[in-house]
C-alpha cells in the first residue's frame, strides 16, 4: 500500500474530461457493450423454453422476455458500434472521485475480496465479528492508518449495530459462537 503515497498524480485534465489510458478504457467499454448484447441473445434463445400452460389464450409468459431480449440485443449492437466508432462514455463524476487518477484495480479487487470473505464468514463467526472484519479491511484497503484503529472502530460499530438491531429491534442477526449468551445482543 506504500505505492499509493508515493505515486505521482498526472496533471489534472479537467478541461477535456478525458480518461488517461484511452485504449485500455475503450477495450473495457467494448466488453461491457458486447456483454449486454450477448445477454440479449441469451434471453431471446432461452425465452422459447419457458413453459406456456395450455390455459393461456393471448399473451403468455414468453412475450415480454422476447421484447426485453430484443431490446438488450439491439442496444448491445448500437453501443458496440458506438464504441468502435470512438464514442466513449463519460465516466461518472463525484465529490470524492479524482478524474485525473488512473484506475486502481488493486483497490477494487481487494474491496471485492473483503465483501466475499464477509459473505462466507457471517454464519461461521457470527455477524458482529464478520462486520468488524469487513469494515476494518475495507478501511485499510482505502487508506486508513493505523490498521488497529480501523479494527477498533469496526468492532465497536459491529457490536453497536448488533445491540441496536439485534437486541433492541429484534432483527435475528447471528451473534456467533464467541458472543453466544450475551443477553443484550440477542433479540
Amino acid at each position: 500500500m506504500s505505492g499509493r503515497a508515493t505515486r505521482e498524480r498526472p496533471p489534472a485534465e479537467h478541461a477535456t474530461g478525458e480518461q488517461p489510458p484511452a485504449a485500455q478504457h475503450r477495450r473495457g467499454e467494448l466488453v461491457l457493450a458486447v456483454t449486454i448484447g450477448a445477454l440479449g441473445v441469451y434471453v431471446l434463445l432461452t425465452a422459447g423454453s419457458i413453459v406456456v400452460p395450455g390455459s393461456t389464450n393471448t399473451l403468455g409468459p414468453r412475450a415480454f422476455p422476447y421484447l426485453v431480449g430484443a431490446l438488450l440485443a439491439a442496444i448491445g449492437v448500437v453501443l458496440t458500434v458506438l464504441v468502435l466508432r470512438g464514442g466513449a462514455g463519460q465516466a461518472e463524476e463525484g465529490e470524492d472521485v479524482d478524474p485525473a487518477v488512473r484506475t486502481d484495480w488493486r483497490t477494487v479487487v481487494l474491496l471485492l475480496a473483503a465483501l466475499v470473505v464477509h459473505v462466507f464468514v457471517i454464519n461461521v463467526i457470527g455477524w458482529p465479528p464478520a462486520a468488524a472484519l469487513l469494515f476494518a479491511s475495507a478501511a485499510v484497503v482505502l487508506g486508513a492508518r493505523p490498521w488497529w484503529r480501523a479494527a477498533l472502530i469496526g468492532l465497536v460499530l459491529g457490536l453497536t449495530i448488533q445491540a441496536v438491531f439485534g437486541g433492541a429491534l429484534g432483527l435475528s442477526l447471528p451473534a456467533g459462537p464467541l458472543l453466544e449468551g450475551v443477553p443484550f445482543l440477542r433479540g
Partner: peptide, 29 residues
C-alpha cells in the same frame, strides 16, 4: 476511508437482513 467502509458495511447489513441469508449478500456483491 471510514465513510466508504461504513457504506459497504451498511449495504451488506441491509441485504443480509432481508432473509438472513448470505446468498443475498453475494448477489449484492
Amino acid at each position: 476511508h471510514y465513510l466508504y467502509a461504513g457504506i459497504l458495511l451498511f449495504g451488506a447489513l441491509g441485504s443480509f437482513a432481508l432473509n438472513f441469508s448470505p446468498v443475498d449478500v453475494l448477489l449484492l456483491v
